[in-house]
Design a binder for these strands. Sequence first.
DNA 1: TTGTAAGCGTTATCAA
DNA 2: TTGATAACGCTTACAA
Lengths: 345, 345
Amino acid sequence: MEGKSQVSAEPSQRRKPRSAPTIYDVARLAGVNPSTVSRTLNTPGRINPKTEAKVHAAARELRYRTNPMARALPTGRTETLGLLLPDITNPMIAGVVRGAQSAAFQRGYTLVLSESQESSEFESRAADGILRSVDGLVLAASRLDDARIRELADERPLVLINREVDGLVSVVGDVEPGIAEAVAHLQLLGHRRIVYLSGPDSSWMSRHRAEVIREVGARRNVEISVVGPNAPTLEAGAAALPRLVESGTTAVMAYNDVMAIGLLRAAKPLGVDVPHDLSIIGFDDVFGSDFTSPPLTTVRMPLLDLGDLAVRRLLDMIGGEAGGEQVEPPVSRLIVRGSSARLRG
Amino acid sequence: MEGKSQVSAEPSQRRKPRSAPTIYDVARLAGVNPSTVSRTLNTPGRINPKTEAKVHAAARELRYRTNPMARALPTGRTETLGLLLPDITNPMIAGVVRGAQSAAFQRGYTLVLSESQESSEFESRAADGILRSVDGLVLAASRLDDARIRELADERPLVLINREVDGLVSVVGDVEPGIAEAVAHLQLLGHRRIVYLSGPDSSWMSRHRAEVIREVGARRNVEISVVGPNAPTLEAGAAALPRLVESGTTAVMAYNDVMAIGLLRAAKPLGVDVPHDLSIIGFDDVFGSDFTSPPLTTVRMPLLDLGDLAVRRLLDMIGGEAGGEQVEPPVSRLIVRGSSARLRG
DNA sequence: TTGTAAGCGTTATCAA
DNA sequence: TTGATAACGCTTACAA
């Protein structure tokens, strides 16, 4: 265990040739029929306590573990759910995963994730890779097009998060309250025009936010303009600043916190004072959004609930549990921090 | 598509009763034997081009997709690799995932992830959940104890990342260079004593860093003391500050950036000037570590390479590819930013 | 080159 | 309550 570490291996390690024990092995040891072993393990109670004990003892001794693939063949069920993520580096995704994970675990399902580096091609391949091995699929902020999503939904129960496709089940946080608060907040601070710095065109959520911001703006008599599309990155956020400054913008809502932070950090070097020259509001309240100076004002969505809800809806569709308890969809709200203020002078 | 969104569903959506097409369906349509279909799909070339064409046509028409569970039964292989993560919110993990993902994809394997919320119990259950459905397992910064890890390694080929267990294969970035740079850096700035703010006891990596820091300190004649264990959180980092200040500490290396940031942000309210009263160095260079003021000095590890390397080692063990090209293990280095400096006065 | 048939480890249906 | 036995969808000798 030196400071000098490396790729280490005991060459001795090799797959043991003995393959895993089956119910046949257990049956032989317990002196019963294989089907009895299966029953014992799956229908506890309906078995003679004595045989039950024998079977369990034998199973323990052999360290028997049921082979999920073999089980899935006759039953068609894997007790596994898949969650597809476009981008694991996006801190907003963590809450969704956590929520989904615990909802699945609670009901005895295993959740497997797959991330696709923001690429719809990878996402498509990943979907193919796990589709047939799961009982259902959750697509979070999917980058796939509607047709492809329908194809997948045709093969397995499927729930969308933060995305809508006609005829499919989706769980979308209600962005309206947070956006309404944000627009009102900016208006109160004296801003007459708000720029929405949009994300990628492939992001349904970016388009959705644009629409809602427009609606709210119209309702409250605030002028809204959209600048974009942009990549959802620090760099793209930073790159947008000059254009905004030139056009005399005083208030920006960015598609997400990452872009907002990019914008914010580009400001000081260019002599733009945030928030006194320019107010900035993000979305998501990601990790790090309150580290900046000034800390970022942002619209937060309770992400845990989204993941949890999506999995519960999915399990309802699969038809396992009772389900159906209609739950309130998550609601966004504005977190006011330092990046929004009244204009100087 | 109103601003008001919600949990939406077309009640019409229900599992279609027709089950997926099998090779039997394809065979019937193509007018050949099922085994021919199997061969066509798996051993291209060794088949009469005409039948091959017929089979492909039939498969396409039926939208046939091979059932991975049924295939796994006779072959014992799933073409799937599992990656277990302790904590998806830890931004350092993203690089590992990306690296592992592309290494796996490149070789035709699907990578499935499972995260365990820093809980060894969840991690254990997750491992059980996917163990039998994957051809091999990568454990990143595992929280499991050695015995449990050995158990898993006994059932499937397994590679560890940032963790060592006797007799098992592991991929560990070389932390020594970065730590040596960090200690030298602090020494040059006039610090005579360095506190290592340790992470949880269950983290092998925290213990490993402590050891290497001690070694480097001894070598360079810098006094090292350890404060901890601590949870790897913002809160725990912040909570440690008073103790450090009381003991007259001038330089801290924290187990990770999250703790370091917690510490750093607690400083200003307590009237501690970072870096002039206290220098802080973190580990990992996570997203957001340069948003703080001052931005965090940190030891960075090339994480992409760790994931990539782990998967390649794993595939070697599985015996699929040629493999074996010995690769340099990733090496850490110091990123000097604003949170470290000479003492005031 | 293609067909036949056995087997992979379970569950499920029927009898006993 | 338990034992036989036929699926489940695929691969793979072995034959033809």
